[in-house]
Design a protein around this nucleic acid. Structure first.
Length: 260
DNA sequence: AAGGAACACAACCGCTATCGT
DNA sequence: GACGATAGCGGTTGTGTTCCT
């Protein structure tokens, strides 16, 4: 037996919210809060809407601290950086942008920012180049390399993927394996055995001269995360590795790189 | 001016995580 | 620990608006 639906979809209103519905929901939430139960809220508030829909409407539109539209260059930079760092973790990215929602950031990326990036233009004064992955890596994905003398932060992007340039200091708790035979960070290593072990990867001792580094690649050369094989260079940090990541520092770094 | 294409953003869907029992 | 209910998340779709021919 499947899970019971959160509401009777046939009997609740769907589609765009009216000003009246917005007003009812806003007034109710400002007066009573959601009571820890969105599912029960519409009935209490007198709305013929699904609880999920109410929650989304409040979080993405009605909340008083929401900013709409008009993303700044600083925000662009942060989004690009974090997206390159962790992929489409929209809620995490949005949490670094006061007043922005995950939905906002996601829409903004998908409709504007992504196109700018792929067109080789991150901002008015920052050019990026798009090239194919070096043949040695054997796929047709793309990477972006910021053409910056500062070279402080070089995101690798294959639509949703990212690698740090090996010459760039990796996020806290991460280093690059200098034995990597490329200019690009094709190996991400952890400074702690625990972190590597926690990622459930096939761990082999690093051939680098650095101690306590563990290659996060599996035996077949593919990068894996949490035991899930990721195609080609698809890569995500494990949660354990992300825990030590300093978002603010990284944002500042990419801002520096982009000439900000 | 009309119609189609492109764009922007709101909303929905389905899945996983989390929490309480 | 198992199970069900709910919250939260990310991908996708729907719809209104603007732009272009």
């Amino acid at each position: 037996m499947g899970r019971a639906p959160c509401c009777d979809k046939a009997n609740v209103k769907r589609g765009p919210w009216s000003a009246e519905e917005d007003s009812i929901l806003k007034n109710y939430l400002e007066q009573f809060g959601n009571g820890g139960n969105w599912i029960a809220l519409p009935k209490k508030a007198g709305l013929n809407r699904c609880g999920k829909s109410c929650r989304l409407r409040w979080l993405n539109y009605l909340r008083p601290d929401i900013k709409h539209g008009g993303f700044t260059k600083e925000e662009d930079t942060i989004i690009c950086n974090l997206y390159c760092t962790m992929g489409s973790r929209w809620s995490v990215i949005a949490s670094q942008l006061p007043g922005r929602t995950d939905n906002d950031v996601k829409n903004y990326w998908n409709t504007k920012l992504k196109k700018n990036v792929l067109a080789g233009k991150l901002s008015d004064n920052t050019q990026v180049s798009v090239s194919t992955i070096p043949e040695e890596f054997g796929n047709s994905s793309y990477y972006l390399s910021a053409d910056s003398a500062a070279g402080a932060f070089l995101p690798y992007v294959s639509d949703i993927n990212c690698y740090y340039h090996q010459n760039h200091p990796a996020p806290q708790g991460m280093i690059f394996d200098p034995s990597a035979n490329s200019n690009y960070g094709n190996k991400m290593t952890s400074t702690t055995q625990e972190a590597a072990a926690a990622s459930s990867l096939s761990i082999s001792s690093s051939s680098s001269t650095l101690e306590n580094n563990y290659d996060l690649r599996s035996a077949n050369g593919n990068v894996e995360d949490e035991g899930i094989l990721l195609d080609d260079f698809d890569f995500e940090y494990s949660y354990e590795l992300l825990n030590g990541f300093d978002f603010e520092k990284a944002s500042n770094e990419v801002a520096q790189c982009l000439g900000g």
